[in-house]
């Protein structure tokens, strides 16, 4: 099908984009359009105006600091896959990027677009929750704020963005040298929406041990250890029954099949972290 008619605007500053969005509640931000495009073509979405933010130079930025790297919102999955960013994750981000949909989607799909779309099956949502990343948000009149990814997402395709606000980037903390990460997703077909997704990040030097179950229908479920308790938690989560209990406690629900998928994804992610 063809998309229904819409207006198109291509602002070159964040402020102009926010002003356009604030002025028209039915306007919609488009970055790479790899989730929105199909919804437009199927006429599931019929916005009055598309605000194309891919010509805003600031949104393609990479900012490095001692403890974190900021990726601008329109950095593509392919740029991450190809190592064209400063990588705070010691290879973990490129690895996750490689598994997102297909190459022809990754060249246009963006990290900020994925987060703002907040599809529970999206790779970045779970991965960046596990890494403890923060979403940077710009609003009308130059307002800026930031939120942890876990607080930014309110539910399936629902976020804390207010009218006139856009995601302008994501701040990802640097992992220390001893950190280990695991990622596993289960899809019926390569590149399709995931049915289950497990992400595990263990960074003992920074006192971080976070396990995330994604693709569950709502916001990512988080299992977290307090400082120093990471190894103990991981050792416990090698066991399937323990994983299932922890997931239920974290709010994961589903029929027997879905629960098994979630448990398997999380166990495999944990296994990567604890493997010698």
């Amino acid at each position: 099908m063809k998309a229904a008619a819409f207006d198109y605007a291509r602002p070159d500053t964040i402020a102009a984009a926010c002003a356009l969005l604030a002025a028209d509640p039915d306007a919609k931000v488009m970055a790479g359009g790899q989730s929105l495009g199909p919804m437009l073509n199927l006429r599931l979405a019929q916005p009055s105006c598309l605000v194309d933010i891919t010509r805003i130079r600031d949104l393609g930025r990479i900012e490095e600091s001692d403890d974190a790297v900021v990726l601008g919102a329109v950095v593509t999955h392919a740029a991450i896959e190809d190592g064209r960013i400063a990588d705070p994750s010691r290879g973990f981000l490129p690895r996750v990027a490689r598994g997102i949909a297909y190459r022809a989607v990754r060249t246009r799909g963006t990290v900020g677009g994925s987060l703002a779309h907040a599809d529970p099956a999206a790779d970045w949502l779970s991965t960046l929750t596990a890494l403890g990343a923060e979403i940077l948000i710009s609003g009308p009149h130059g307002a800026r704020r930031h939120l942890p990814v876990g607080d930014f997402v309110r539910g399936a395709m629902s976020t804390a963005l207010e009218p006139g606000e856009i995601v302008d980037g994501v701040r990802i903390p640097r992992l220390s040298a001893a950190a280990r990460c695991g990622f596993h997703k289960i899809c019926r077909k390569t590149g399709e929406f995931a049915e289950g997704m497990g992400v595990a990040v263990h960074d003992p030097e920074r006192g971080v041990c976070r396990i995330v179950a994604g693709a569950g229908g709502g916001r990512p479920a988080v299992i977290e250890a307090s400082r120093g308790a990471g190894s103990r938690l991981l050792a416990r989560l090698v066991d399937a029954e323990a994983v299932r209990e922890a997931l239920i406690e974290a709010g994961v629900a589903g029929d027997e099949y879905r629960m098994r998928v979630h448990v398997a994804a999380v166990r495999r992610a944990v296994a990567e972290v604890v493997s010698p």
Binding site: P11, D12, A19, A22, A23, G32, R55, G164
Partner: peptide
């Protein structure tokens, strides 16, 4: 450019059929 092609260096910014981006935020 790390975003979707072609990015900000391609051509001058055009607002197609849309209102001026500098319109005051109603």
């Amino acid at each position: 450019w790390r975003g979707p092609a072609p990015g900000p260096d391609a051509t001058a910014t055009v607002a197609a059929t849309a209102p001026s981006p500098t319109a005051p935020a109603a």
